Amino acid sequence: MRPEKTDKLATMLILLLAGITGLAVLAFLAYLLVTGLPHVSWHFLLSPAKAFQSGGGIRDQLFNSLYLVVLTMLVSVPLALCAAIYLSEYAVQNRLTAAIRLAVEVLGSLPSVVIGLFGYLVFVLQFGLDFSLLAGALVLTILNLPILTRSFEDALQQVPTLQRQAGLGLGMSKWRVTTKIVLPGALPGIITGMILSAGRVFGEAAALIYTAGQSTPAVDYGNWNPFSPTSFLNPLRPAETLAVHIWKVNSEGLVPDARAVSNGAAAVLIITILLFNLLARLIGYLVKRRFAK
């Protein structure tokens, strides 16, 4: 067979497989949205869940998910950024750095349920945090670190080497070059990686079943004291997230409209994750355009 025909056949096969994959993903998303959006309303979003009655909402679960994203990013972003700066700018390429990268890859491939069990043994039992938002944030930090570290390191390495050499040639220190030249140049990729990882954290369930808990006590949204047991900002209270709520409603089925609640919550979860991805692209584009001027 001639090379032209082989190339054409291979291209058609790749396009066919890519089209099948894209259609499967779109069909799955369409099914979730078609079955879930009719159950989504302001009452559904702003009312609390009900244990044994129909007509409950997802107000607390939605807030818990967003609050948990904020707590996780506050812990994981500085750690991942420091690790990425070390690996990209300071580490000598030897067996030690290769071992560190291998450890990051292994940690990133662990199932979330395994990390959740580790968090239950260490944070919930050993550290005495019980089922709480803080325990969930710490276990999600472990889950999130490999993704953030890789994305931050890739963003830093995309900054041209000539810019580093120019800064060093002007007498700038290594740290000043990193903070004044490399980090601003890598900022679009860093922001994009942060928002994309936040979307993954928002949709996580398995690790949070063992750490953040499967129940949400009554909280006062007018109480802004984070040290108060009834405050919605208290990081030491148990908190059922949206993804855990979907799993719990489907597994227990104690409410009469469990199917409607599950479908509506799944639609809200998918839409929120899509918004995270769109926001990441938009902010990355705007920041890149600003620094390009």
Rank of each mutant, 00 (worst) to 15 (best):
P188T: 12
L168R: 12
Q163K: 13
S173E: 15
S173T: 15
G203S: 03
I191N: 02
Q165Y: 09
A205P: 02
S197P: 07
F202T: 01
I191P: 01
L140I: 06
G189K: 04
L138S: 02
L162H: 14
Q165N: 13
S173F: 13
M194H: 01
L138Q: 01
A207E: 09
P146Q: 06
A198M: 14
T192H: 01
P146C: 05
L148N: 01
F202N: 03
A137M: 02
A205Q: 07
D154A: 12
A206R: 03
I195P: 00
G199L: 05
L187E: 05
G203Q: 04
F152Y: 14
T161V: 15
V201Y: 00
K180W: 11
L168C: 12
G189E: 04
I209R: 07
N144D: 08
L162G: 12
A207W: 08
G167P: 10
I147T: 14
E204Q: 07
A186K: 09
E204R: 02
I142F: 09
T211Q: 06
S173L: 11
K180D: 14
R200W: 05
P184K: 14
Q158M: 13
R176P: 08
F202G: 01
G189Q: 03
P184G: 13
L162T: 13
T179F: 15
G199T: 03
P146D: 10
F152C: 06
V177N: 13
R164E: 15
V201K: 02
P160A: 08
F152W: 09
G203W: 03
R150S: 08
L183H: 06
A207P: 07
T161I: 13
L208C: 12
I209M: 15
A155E: 04
A137R: 01
R200V: 06
L143E: 04
G167M: 12
T141R: 06
I181S: 13
R164G: 10
T149A: 05
S151E: 08
G189I: 02
Q163R: 15
K174S: 14
T192M: 07
L168H: 10
P184C: 11
R150E: 12
F152V: 05
G171D: 06
A155N: 08
